[in-house]
Amino acid sequence: MSGRQARWQPHNDSRRERIVLSAVELIEQAPAGVEVPIVQIAENAGLAKSVVYRQFAGRDELDRRIRSEIADRFVADIDDALDIGDGSIREILVRTVGGVVTWIEEHPRLHEFLRTGPSETDPDVDAMSALIGTIAASTRALVTGLAGVVGVTDDGSADTMTFAIVSMTEATVTRWANDPNPVLTREQLIEEVASYAWHVVDGVARRHGLTLDPDQQLVEIISQLATGAG
């Protein structure tokens, strides 16, 4: 990058961010299935349409960047719910599933847009699959950490289990949110999906010789298991 390009980079980064945030705002407000045109995104950002095309190679690149922004917001909200320092396994599962339900309820158009193609991080993988993988990886770190304190070697179960739970949760909540006459209430859905997740966790734990109490504080479980392992 030349010196001139380097001087302009912060300015260009700022414009790119304005464009992406403008697009996210308009997508939130748009009716289901309606594409927001670039000229409207530019106007909302207070820029000329030509500026958008100078910052992004085309609509595909802009859409990938928008999906990355949406995915980052989703992950940030779910990461807060996954705080292992606060709550029992059951409470953490209920809180996390509730976080997914709340996000999809409050941002239906963003969730819809996230499912329309890839993000900028991996153009060969659709954005929703990449998002599920990111959340599963975060959850997997907690599971492998728990296994590590008692000397259990990861045999791949953690990877399969966390991906299965996260993908099941997203798909089930999406189906419920898109159903005009859902059988379950919001609270029933959260309890049901959290229950499914717990049974998966419990089954994998028992296969490795661990008996977990879903209503005990998770930090206490980790401490007790670590003491017993020592």
Rank of each mutant, 00 (worst) to 15 (best):
I221G: 00
P31H: 06
N181D: 14
S2V: 08
Q9A: 14
G133C: 07
Q188N: 03
V183C: 04
T102G: 05
D124I: 02
I78A: 10
R16L: 03
F74N: 10
V193Q: 01
R7V: 15
L21R: 15
E91M: 04
L212C: 02
R18G: 04
A71K: 10
S119I: 02
D122W: 07
D72G: 06
V75D: 12
G151R: 03
A30G: 09
E170A: 11
V100E: 00
E91T: 00
N44T: 01
Q217F: 02
M128C: 00
R18K: 13
I132V: 14
A130P: 01
G85M: 03
A164H: 12
T96N: 07
S14A: 15
Q29I: 04
R206C: 07
R15I: 14
T169S: 06
R115P: 08
G85E: 01
P214E: 14
I84Q: 05
A23F: 12
G46C: 07
E69D: 12
I132C: 07
V51H: 08
E112I: 08
E187P: 03
S119A: 13
T121A: 14
A127F: 01
R54T: 09
D154L: 00
L225F: 01
H111A: 12
V200F: 05
R115T: 12
I165W: 08
S22L: 05
S2L: 12
T227K: 15
L189D: 02
I78C: 06
N181E: 15
D179S: 08
L82Q: 09
E43I: 00
M168L: 10
I135P: 07
V149E: 01
E91S: 07
L26K: 11
R206L: 12
R175C: 01
L184F: 13
F113M: 11
R206M: 10
V51E: 15
V101Q: 09
T153A: 15
E28C: 11
D60W: 14
A137H: 14
S50R: 06
E170T: 15
A226Y: 03
T160Y: 02
A137Q: 13
V200I: 11
L82T: 07
E17C: 03
A229N: 12
G58T: 07
D215Y: 05
S157K: 02
L225D: 00
M161P: 04
M168F: 05
A76E: 10
I27N: 03
T169Q: 04
T211M: 10
E69L: 09
I84P: 05
I84W: 09
L93F: 08
R115A: 13
R115G: 10
I27S: 04
A32H: 11
I27Q: 03
A158R: 02
R207P: 02
E35D: 07
W103L: 11
D63C: 13
A48P: 06
D154E: 07
V100M: 11
M1E: 14
T102K: 11
T185R: 05
D126W: 06
V193A: 03
I70M: 01
I19D: 12
H199L: 10
L114D: 04
E105A: 09
G151T: 01
D13E: 14
